[in-house]
């Protein structure tokens, strides 16, 4: 199933679940994400996302976890990856979004956060969380604008946990 989303910059995104067939495209996509954004996504510095790291993104069970791919409808290019991964109790879902460098600042993150929030509600989750590096100001700012509340992450000074409750 493909969902069409419109961003505030007028971009149209086609969003669908990822499958095994998407591995090569996803690997190429992460190569087009900036080094820093790749670090923010995986908290790892490797320049290429390995087969092992991609595995959970192409083998989601489509309920407890879902890995979405967002394509620019006009060009057909893969421009973002968005993951919703929930705990077993289906109480809390963690989200993580990566956007291709040249598609940042076009409202893609904004649209995908709304989309993931909707997916979370559909699953009956109580809340969604995002775990961000403290120096990822852009993501923290965006999530705050979307109603996420930041808190320290355990006693780890380098991270922030942002959460948004639905009930």
């Amino acid at each position: 199933m493909t969902t069409q989303l419109s961003t505030r910059s007028g971009l149209t995104l086609s969003v669908r679940a990822a499958s095994e067939a998407d591995e090569a495209a996803l690997a190429a996509f992460f190569d087009s994400v900036s080094d820093e954004d790749r670090r923010f996504r995986f908290f790892a510095a490797a320049e290429h996302v390995s087969h092992e790291q991609l595995d959970p993104l192409i083998h989601a069970d489509h309920f407890q976890s879902e890995s979405f791919l967002a394509f620019d409808t006009a060009s057909g290019d893969l421009v973002a990856s968005a993951l919703l991964a929930c705990d077993k109790a289906m109480d809390t879902g963690e989200i993580a979004v990566s956007i291709r460098s040249d598609y940042k600042g076009k409202g893609v993150g904004w649209a995908l956060l709304d989309f993931l929030g909707q997916e979370a509600r559909t699953r009956g989750l109580r809340r969604v969380i995002a775990i961000e590096a403290r120096d990822n100001h852009a993501a923290i700012e965006l999530e705050r604008e979307k109603g996420f509340v930041p808190e320290p992450f355990e006693d780890d000074l380098s991270l922030v946990i942002l959460s948004k409750s639905f009930r």
Binding site: F42, F43, Q53, S65, E94, E154, D155, D156, S158
Partner: peptide, 8 residues
């Protein structure tokens, strides 16, 4: 759960 390494 989203694959971020818990470095701390």
């Amino acid at each position: 759960r989203s694959g971020k390494i818990l470095r701390n």
